[in-house]
């Protein structure tokens, strides 16, 4: 707990860290309380004011059905951001576990696992997610699982390389010499000492997850209408692009902001969690 507070304080001292933390906090707040903050029902039609520009009634304008874009973005934050975080957690946890195990065991098992991972990594992430979705069928949850699986190989490489350097340290030797079980060595000796780089990588990956999720929804494989998931909002607005830019611009800017926020937080965390940067 104390360590978390200390990290947070150090984070707030660097400009990127401070901006990133504030933006991400704001975003999580919106994700949770978005529906309550929304001034209007995101799915109610206002045929009198279709393609409205930002006005006092519709702060961000309206779309082709006259739905309030502000309300739709606020409500859509939950499905976009929370699902992206969920996808990242799935990818990070599974990747880290594979990486630690592979790095700790070493030898030919490590070779087999890593060459398989290499093969999977050769397929572009989006293509892999599309393949998985083809098998699982399209829905938001399946998109999350697909992105998680697509992220795992990259995470496992990072986890493995950190494990390889931690494994050589004397406290691991000490644990082996006193006859600790492999489970204890992996989870109690190695894991706590390699979470820092993994957390940093995960934070940056949230931004990728949001973009991939939006892409999948854009392609019609993620969230389904009338959901206000941001990627889906852009995909639907595409047909009406030349009548009004607002339906594309608003969710587009939102996605960009979220990506920037998580990237800033990741950069800040990287500096703070780096032991060499500490006093």
């Amino acid at each position: 707990m104390q360590a978390t507070l200390k990290t947070l304080r150090a984070l707030m001292r660097s400009p990127q860290g401070a901006v990133g933390t504030i933006l991400v906090t704001l975003l999580l707040f919106i994700s949770v309380f978005g529906p309550m903050l929304a001034p209007q029902d995101p799915e109610s039609f206002n045929f009198g004011s279709r393609f409205s520009e930002p006005t006092s009634q519709f702060l961000f304008g309206t779309d082709w059905f006259g739905r309030d874009l502000l309300s739709r973005v606020l409500v859509g934050a939950r499905s976009t951001v929370l699902l992206a975080i969920l996808a990242t957690i799935i990818g990070t946890a599974s990747g880290a576990l594979i990486g630690i195990f592979s790095g700790f065991v070493g030898g030919w098992i490590d070779e087999v696992i890593m060459r398989t991972i290499d093969a999977v990594m050769a397929i572009p992430g989006l293509l892999l997610a599309l393949m998985i979705l083809t098998v699982l069928g399209s829905s938001s949850l399946n998109a999350v699982i697909a992105i998680g699986i697509a992220f795992a190989p990259g995470m496992s490489r990072i986890a493995r390389s950190t494990t390889l350097s931690v494994r050589e340290l004397d406290y691991v030797s000490a644990a082996r010499a006193r006859g600790e079980s492999s489970l204890w060595i992996i989870f109690a000796e190695i894991l706590p000492n390699m979470v820092a780089p993994v957390i940093v990588e995960a934070t940056i990956r949230v931004a990728f997850a949001i973009m991939t999720l939006a892409t999948l929804s854009f392609l019609g494989l993620g969230a389904q209408p009338p959901s206000s998931e941001w990627g889906l909002m852009i995909a639907e607005a595409r047909e009406h692009m030349f009548r009004s830019p607002w339906p594309i611009l608003v969710p587009g800017v939102a996605i960009a902001l979220v990506a920037i926020a998580f990237n800033l937080l990741g950069d800040g965390l990287r500096d703070v969690l780096n032991p060499h940067a500490q006093e």
Binding site: L169, D170, Y171, S173, A174, A177, R178, G179, A188, E189, P192, N193
Partner: peptide, 23 residues
Amino acid sequence: DAAYRADVQIIFQNPDSSLNPRH
């Protein structure tokens, strides 16, 4: 085996790396 390991202990050169910093 465990009995031998208990009877023969080792102390390493550098306590910075032989003690887990997170414990």
